[in-house]
Design a protein around this nucleic acid. Sequence first.
DNA 1: TCAAATGTTGGCCGATCGGTCAGCTAAGGT
DNA 2: ACCTTAGCTGACCGATCGGCCAACATTTGA
Lengths: 182, 182
Amino acid sequence: MARSATTMRADILDSAVRLFAAHGFRGTSLQDIATDAGCSKASLLYHFTNKDAILTELLAPVGPEFAALEGRLAELDGEEAARAAVAGLVDLSLRFRLQVKILLQDVDALINRPELPDVDGITERLTDALSGGSAAPQARVWAWMAMLGIILTSAGELTLPEETLRAELTRGALRTLGLQTD
Amino acid sequence: MARSATTMRADILDSAVRLFAAHGFRGTSLQDIATDAGCSKASLLYHFTNKDAILTELLAPVGPEFAALEGRLAELDGEEAARAAVAGLVDLSLRFRLQVKILLQDVDALINRPELPDVDGITERLTDALSGGSAAPQARVWAWMAMLGIILTSAGELTLPEETLRAELTRGALRTLGLQTD
DNA sequence: TCAAATGTTGGCCGATCGGTCAGCTAAGGT
DNA sequence: ACCTTAGCTGACCGATCGGCCAACATTTGA
């Protein structure tokens, strides 16, 4: 018992989220995760029932956060809703960089999994909120939604400090939607 | 000899580009492509030396197009270069929807393949062109570059006519970059 | 002190992957 | 009629995948 069960699970999830984000879910083997986490492949499957369970658990915190954002947006209308949606999405994307990347790049492998966040539904409702602030057509909103998640793809390459990145993402989003920036 | 060699190769590439775009390179097996193209797996490997060769060939037309765009941009400066870069990228992304999606989502599987377009280098030079028109910081340009490619991900879901999509993508890009729109 | 519980591992399994090969069919030239 | 060639295929191969299990190590509590 080198590490406690809690520590071991955390280490495995830490390795998995980095590797899934870098090489994709299908491009990462259990052996890859085990090597990175410093244990055997069999040990992974003692702490997690299977590979999918690892993915499900590391994405678990994201679902409720999106749901909470949707709840907040439901009470707003028009431009106010759109600005809140931008702020919320920028915040979530920065706080869950790797998870958002996984959600986007492996969306095909994740679709139709009831235990995971309903990406399509979430996207649809957020699109409604973003469109509320202007007559921004479908394509413009879609474009910005996609942009937000994918820019974090280049996590390692973007050397900007987090606050600068947050400000630029917010400004770019508002501009794309046709809303005034400070 | 059901189909001529030329027809067969074209059919295989047509199946492959759709399946790679939908399920990823790693998520598509040779058997999947063969079934879709209506032939045996062995027949694929008669027409193409291996799975990589299929990928290389269906991406082949994209590289020269990007290179040509870079060439045109090299003769321009400042805002003029940025506007030309936007127009060129929108055009390429619309004309090579599926290929662009593959390039983005499977970038990890494609990196360091000398026979394929140098994604990193292309991105870097286009980023320079886009930045030329304004003081647009790194993050804003990156964000829009990513957006452009990924929006085409939702090819099937976006029901907008191509001309509307082209206009909206162009307008959104110019706005994000802080350039005036018509 | 010694089980019982917890954590860990090497070795193994069936499935699937990309890729090979001998051999089949059909068309074309002579 | 015959042979060559191009096109195509079922069967098979080695490698790798996710997952399972018996056995072993370590800690814990009575």
